[in-house]
Amino acid sequence: MCIAFVLLLGFGFGCEIHEGFANPCVVLGQDVGETAYTAGVLAAWGPLIFGPVSLGAGLLWGIANALSRYLASRR
């Protein structure tokens, strides 16, 4: 979601968004520069942080599911 928001602001409204600092970004009369900066950081670094966590949780769920199915079939 953050990636889509950053792309919309960057290409649709011509805002400059990068990880260094917040730039002014006026959309419909409101400055959303800080929000754009935060979304940009989350869009860039979010997959690196949350990707391994999601992958690990998915693997644990898969192992638990396979184990429960195996134990249920033994009964």
Rank of each mutant, 00 (worst) to 15 (best):
A44G: 06
I17Y: 03
V53H: 11
E19N: 13
L8W: 02
A4E: 09
V27Q: 06
S54Y: 10
P47C: 11
R69H: 15
G14D: 09
V27L: 15
F50I: 12
P52D: 11
L28W: 05
S73M: 07
G33I: 01
C15W: 00
I63L: 15
F21Q: 15
E34S: 07
G10P: 02
G10D: 02
H18P: 07
G56Y: 03
F13E: 10
Q30P: 07
G51R: 00
G46A: 08
L8V: 06
A39G: 04
Q30K: 14
D31A: 09
V41Y: 02
V41K: 01
R74V: 06
D31I: 06
G62Q: 14
S73H: 08
C15T: 01
N65P: 05
N65V: 15
F13P: 06
A36R: 00
G12L: 01
F5Y: 15
E16G: 07
A72P: 00
Y37C: 03
E34N: 09
A64F: 08
N23L: 09
V6F: 01
V53G: 09
A57H: 03
L28Y: 11
L48D: 05
F5D: 03
G10F: 06
G51L: 09
G51N: 04
A66M: 07
A22V: 04
C25H: 01
R74N: 12
G33S: 10
Y70S: 09
L9Y: 00
R75N: 05
S73G: 04
G51F: 04
L7P: 02
E34L: 11
L60A: 14
A36T: 01
Q30S: 13
N23S: 13
Y70A: 13
A22E: 03
W61F: 14
R75S: 13
G58I: 05
G29V: 04
V26F: 12
P24H: 13
V27Y: 05
H18C: 12
V6C: 05
G10R: 00
E16K: 10
Y70K: 12
